[in-house]
Each structure stands twice: as structure tokens, then as C-alpha cells.
């Protein structure tokens, strides 16, 4: 590092320290509580659908899939109605983590880029936010599968 670079670094570090005092504290406790309540409420609705499908005669371990489909539909619908972003403003990760948040990330992006056309706009861009989730879900699936294969072999 040259002398002038070192001096610049020193100035920037001093500024960082000065600026730090002026930064607002994020309302961490409030955010955590709201995320818990909103995430919990969404999960409770999901559980209600699982119970419903089970009560209608589906085996309990199979009732999760149609419940997830319903929740994705609801997330997409609320996004289209312009409601989901308001829920997320309050709920934060509590609204982003459940499968409804995943639906929101795809539908919000699709709505936004529809203006640039159905092909280069909407369909090309709709996985802009959700894409990384899919990529790393597949990658971690492969990695976990390999570990299991080395440890336990094929069963």
C-alpha cells in the first residue's frame, strides 16, 4: 500500500468512526417480535389447510403439498392486490421466509417487468429475486445427497 493510499484508508476509517455515532439503531426487538407474530400467523393458516386436507381424508404426511400450493396461491393473490408488501413492511422476515414470501418475490417481479414485454420482460426477469433461492436449494440438495451417499451408501 502506498503512502497516499494508507492516508486515504486512515481518513476513511476516521470518518466511519465519526459517522457511526449518527446512525439510528434498528428497532431490533420490535422487528423480532413482529416477525414472530406475522410468520407465526402465516404458518398457522398453513397448518389450518394441512388439517383441512387431512380431515378430508388425505394421509397427514401428504396433506402438506396441497396446503403449500394454497399458500403460494394466497401469497401471489395478495401480491397482485398490492397487500403483501404492506404485510412485509410490518412482518419483515416473518413475511419473507414462509412460502408466501417466495410467491411474492416471483409475482412482484413478474408484475414489475411485464411492461418490458411478456418474453424479455416478465418471463426473463421473474426469477430475478427467487432465482438464487432455487439455485442454492438445488446445489445444497446435491451436496447433502453426496454426503449421505459417502456416509451411508445407496439404500
Amino acid at each position: 500500500m502506498s503512502q497516499s493510499q494508507a492516508q486515504k484508508k486512515q481518513e476513511q476509517d476516521a470518518y466511519k468512526k465519526l459517522a457511526q455515532k449518527h446512525q439510528p439503531k434498528p428497532p431490533l426487538l420490535k422487528n423480532v417480535i413482529m416477525a414472530f407474530l406475522v410468520g407465526g400467523a402465516i404458518s398457522a393458516v398453513g397448518q389450518a389447510f394441512i388439517n383441512y386436507f387431512a380431515a378430508r381424508g388425505m394421509p397427514p404426511d401428504k396433506a402438506g403439498a396441497p396446503a403449500a400450493i394454497v399458500m403460494v396461491f394466497l401469497g401471489a393473490l395478495l401480491t397482485g392486490l398490492g397487500v403483501y408488501d404492506s404485510i412485509a413492511k410490518v412482518g419483515g422476515a416473518g413475511a419473507a421466509v414462509p412460502i408466501t414470501g417466495y410467491a411474492n418475490s416471483i409475482v412482484a417481479t413478474a408484475m414489475e417487468f411485464k411492461r418490458e414485454g411478456w418474453i424479455m420482460g416478465m418471463s426473463a426477469r421473474m426469477f430475478q429475486i427467487a432465482g438464487p433461492v432455487i439455485v442454492y436449494a438445488v446445489v445444497s440438495g446435491v451436496v447433502v445427497g453426496l454426503i449421505r451417499w459417502f456416509l451411508a451408501g445407496v439404500q
Binding site: T79, G82, D85, A88, N104, S105, V107, A108, M111, F113
Partner: peptide, 9 residues
Amino acid sequence: YPVELGVQR
């Protein structure tokens, strides 16, 4: 981000 995406500012 897209305007309808649920993010906390």
C-alpha cells in the same frame, strides 16, 4: 427492488 416486493426498509 420491484415495488410490490415485501421488503422492510
